[in-house]
Amino acid sequence: MVYPKKRWVLLILYLVMSFQAAAENIKMKAVINDITKIYMSSMTYIFLNQALINQQAKDKTNLFSQKFIDNIKLTYRAKYNEEFPKDNHFAKKILLQAMVEVMEDNKALIYDDDIGFKGIIPATYAFQISAKLATKGIGLKIRFTRTAESIRNKLNSPDVWEKSIMQEIINAPQIYYDENALLNGKPAIRQFTPLPMTPVCLTCHGTPADNPLNANKNKPQWTDIDISGFKMENWTINDFGGGVSISIEKSFLEQH
């Protein structure tokens, strides 16, 4: 038999623990949301600066080191109309560092005036960030992916979790959050943020009419190969745009 006084104590304890768990959950969600938006802002910056990346003999210092981060922060503010997130978690610090490292990896190419198209587009840049984070072994995984049959880079294919989420949300896109997932066999939090198809995506994945390489050419001369060398998929603005998948091991989130 539980005495009434004890019952109250247990109830209060239960409520305190529930509130703590809820608060922790909100904190983790906030970190993942920040990471998603920082990652997407950097992809936007790469898209907006294709001319700078590919042009000859330009001052390209905006693409490197702290200046690159400052520019991502500006892009973030313009894109989301809010302040750049506070540097209050190790995951955000590591992500920003990985971005600087990726651009440094591409420095020789970016400054190579003999190469016109450098191939540093949002999708390849995003994959390089993912690959860079994977080498750090910190339990943080980020991926810009889409349904398996439409993936160009096979190393970017969705895993079982991502496949099942995409099946679920493809017709009704919404952010999917799973706080009881696994990453590397360890408890993890995962989030999938669907992205809308945009005219920008269609320049490579749309129809030959969307291909900038066909501009000012007669239709019989059009190519269905995009600037990166892939065959265009003929997607339209109403198609599923893929999404950003973020997974963080709980131990990593809690430690930092």
Binding site: D105, A108, L109, Y111, D112, D114, I115, G119, T124, F127, Q128, A131, A134, T135, N153, L155
Partner: peptide
């Protein structure tokens, strides 16, 4: 390729390298 494809290398004038991202060696 980073060993050869950098701006201090004379080969930089003639060769350009691209990468198999996702296949890193520590």
């Amino acid at each position: 390729p980073h060993k050869v494809y950098h701006r201090n290398n004379p080969l930089y004038k003639e060769l350009a390298c691209s990468y198999f991202h996702g296949y890193a060696t520590p």
